[in-house]
C-alpha cells in the first residue's frame, strides 16, 4: 500500500511539472479566458440581464476545456512513455504493471483536477469582474466534476492501451459528449415505437455517462443544491466504473510485449 502511494506520488509530481512546462495548459486557459471575457463584455454595451448567458458561457467553457485537457493528459500518460522508450526503465524498477497503470491514472486525475480548478478560478474571477453572481450549487459542481474526471481519466488510459493516442482521444471525447446526446435522443424518441424506445433505453443504460457529473446547467440557472446522497451515489459509480476501465486496460497491458 505504502509503495503504491509512493509510486502515485512520484508519477503525480513529474506529471505536474510537465503540465506547468507544456504550452497546452496555458493555451487552453487563454482560450477559455477570451471566451468568458468576450461574453462578459456585452454588458459594457448596455445589454442587461446577461447573468445567465455569461454563466452559461463560463460553465460550458470550464467544462469543455477541462474535459479536453483531461483526455489529452490521460491519453499520453503511457503511450508517450512507450514512444520515448522510457517505459523500459520504468518497468525495470521493482513495480508491477498494475502499479504503473494505477500510478499513471492517479497522476492524470490529479493534474486534470488541478487544471479544472485553475480554469474555474479564472472563470469565477471573470464572473466577479462582470458582477455575475454564483450560487452555492457551484461548490457541488466543482466536487462532482472532479469525481467525473477520475472516471474519465480511467476510461482514456484504458482506451490508450487498446488504440493509438489519437484514436483514444477521439473515442473518449465521443463517449463523453455522445452519452449526453444519446440521453437527449431517448427523450425525443417517438413513444409510438416502443421497440426503438426500448433499444435506445438499453443503449443509454449501457453507455458510460460523463454527463452524470455535469451540474453546469443547474449552476447556470442557479438551482438549489442537489441532495448529497446523489453525489455519494455518483462517487460510487465513478469508482466502480473507473476501476472497471482500469482493469480492462490492465488485462491488455499485463502480458503485452513492449
Amino acid at each position: 500500500m505504502t509503495q503504491t502511494v509512493r509510486i502515485c506520488s512520484a508519477f503525480t509530481r513529474t506529471s505536474f511539472l510537465e503540465m506547468i512546462r507544456r504550452k497546452d495548459f496555458y493555451a487552453i486557459g487563454i482560450l477559455m479566458l477570451v471566451m468568458v471575457a468576450g461574453a462578459g463584455t456585452f454588458g459594457f454595451f448596455g445589454v442587461r440581464g446577461l447573468s445567465v448567458f455569461v454563466r452559461d458561457v463560463a460553465f460550458t467553457a470550464i467544462g469543455l476545456f477541462s474535459t479536453i485537457f483531461a483526455v489529452m493528459a490521460s491519453a499520453r500518460q503511457i503511450t508517450e512513455e512507450i514512444s520515448r522508450k522510457t517505459l523500459y526503465p520504468l518497468l525495470a524498477r521493482p513495480i508491477t504493471r498494475w502499479q504503473l497503470i494505477f500510478g499513471k491514472w492517479a497522476a492524470a486525475w490529479v493534474i486534470s483536477s488541478a487544471a479544472f480548478l485553475a480554469f474555474s478560478v479564472i472563470g469565477i474571477a471573470l464572473l466577479t469582474v462582470f458582477s455575475v453572481p454564483v450560487t452555492a450549487i457551484f461548490l457541488q459542481y466543482l466536487i462532482l466534476k472532479i469525481i467525473g474526471l477520475a472516471w474519465l481519466c480511467g476510461l482514456t488510459i484504458a482506451l490508450s492501451l487498446y488504440a493509438t493516442p489519437a484514436a483514444a482521444i477521439t473515442l473518449s471525447l465521443i463517449i463523453c459528449f455522445g452519452s449526453s446526446a444519446c440521453g437527449r435522443i431517448v427523450l425525443l424518441a417517438n413513444a409510438d415505437h416502443p421497440m426503438s424506445t426500448f433499444g435506445l433505453n438499453v443503449a443509454y443504460s449501457l453507455l458510460p455517462h460523463y454527463d452524470y457529473f455535469d451540474l453546469g446547467a443547474k449552476a447556470t440557472y442557479a438551482w438549489p443544491m442537489i441532495p448529497w446522497w446523489v453525489i455519494g451515489a455518483l462517487l460510487a459509480y465513478s469508482a466502480l466504473h473507473g476501476a472497471a476501465m482500469l482493469l480492462l486496460g490492465y488485462v491488455r497491458f499485463r502480458s503485452q510485449p513492449i
Binding site: 512520484a10 509530481r13 513529474t14 522508450k85
Partner: peptide
C-alpha cells in the same frame, strides 16, 4: 537496465528524472 536510445521526458531535468526513478525504486 539501460534501454537503447531512450528520450527522457523533455520537460524534466536530469535531477527530476533521477528523483522519479529513485522513488519508484524505493
Amino acid at each position: 537496465f539501460l534501454p537503447e536510445t531512450a528520450m527522457y521526458s523533455p520537460y524534466l531535468t536530469p535531477l527530476e528524472t533521477m528523483n522519479l526513478y529513485a522513488d519508484l525504486h524505493g
